[in-house]
Design a protein around this nucleic acid. Sequence first.
DNA 1: TTCATAAGATACTAATAGTTTCTTATTTTA
DNA 2: TAAAATAAGAAACTATTAGTATCTTATGAA
Lengths: 202, 202
Amino acid sequence: MVQKRRRGTELTEAIYQATREILENDGLSALTFPKVATAAGTSKPVIYRRWDSPFSLAIAAVQDKIKLENHGRMDELKLTGTSLRADLSQLLQRFIISMNAFGQSYTNTFFNGMSKQQNEVIQKMIDEATAIDISALNQVLKRAKERGELATTEMSNDLKLLPFEWLRYHLFVNENVSRVNLTALIDDVLIPSYQHATGTPK
Amino acid sequence: MVQKRRRGTELTEAIYQATREILENDGLSALTFPKVATAAGTSKPVIYRRWDSPFSLAIAAVQDKIKLENHGRMDELKLTGTSLRADLSQLLQRFIISMNAFGQSYTNTFFNGMSKQQNEVIQKMIDEATAIDISALNQVLKRAKERGELATTEMSNDLKLLPFEWLRYHLFVNENVSRVNLTALIDDVLIPSYQHATGTPK
DNA sequence: TTCATAAGATACTAATAGTTTCTTATTTTA
DNA sequence: TAAAATAAGAAACTATTAGTATCTTATGAA
């Protein structure tokens, strides 16, 4: 019988996929090299040679998925609404999709009881995401100002980040955010707050 | 040499304390019975006899701390403000204190990559907390209505839960919430949203 | 066809989780 | 106060699994 060996991308992809499955089902604490090797149908040395810890493998596997499923980056979003309300809706819908691509399960996996060093890695990821969030929202505000819906675009970052953080929270606790919930957030919280913050009369 | 043995509450407390220290320093994944035994200065069988998994020990240890440090339950809070703004501030300050009592560290420890079953346990804790949050906020709203600050107290639970979720999110990602941030949330988001939701003119 | 590279099998060591048995300190109760 | 019940702790053990070393050989490149 002729034996077949996977290598390169094919093998790596199988390892990442196995890694993600373990992460989703059992979490980071259950992610060990031997388990990954078995799940990926390869042998331990293959894993041990390439990664130095289950944590770094986990990061690599998740980043791989983000890269694969990247439906366009958040800050490259082309806004098409004709109102602040519509733009916000478009942006946040997209945010939800991206988060789901990131994977419900990993989100809280990575807010695990981790070492300080590991936490720094995660912190960096959050900071990067935050910068993108703010720049996306700035776009929305700028367009609203141009339409005359808002007096200025000046407001605190806390306020700009509010919807993203609200959505992430709901992802953390594994709650679904329906379109209805999202619309309510926009109409009942965001728009009134923006108008208030920028001194825009209704 | 006469040997001394701890039992009952004294021993249990030592075990819980050791458990919490491990949780804070190294997270849930590092919490093993042998480590707890050593840290608590007792022997493994003592632990193995009483708990059936590190997870259930962790839950017990954290609940023990909540019980110990319970500065009065959230829904028994006696509001003393003379405005919606002041009441909100009082409630949310208290919420932050309680969360800190719960322990910065455990919060994300328990949003770890856990098994489905473990997640259910956590889910139940969240649901209970949510009920308390809503009832506390209802109090605040009721008082505001009585003062004439709000037209009604009718609004969605999503809106009522917003500040708690916002605060929890910041705890998750280990960001500090200063009094300034909190005040901005109240003035720039909550009050405008409440007024908007209840049709209250400014 | 030969050579270099890397996959994979296998057997091993090390560490540590979990168990069993027994002893004895401490509390209960008669 | 003595006897009995209860539970803590010591110690030695087994089982599991993480991690390593060695060797073979499939696969792609020269």
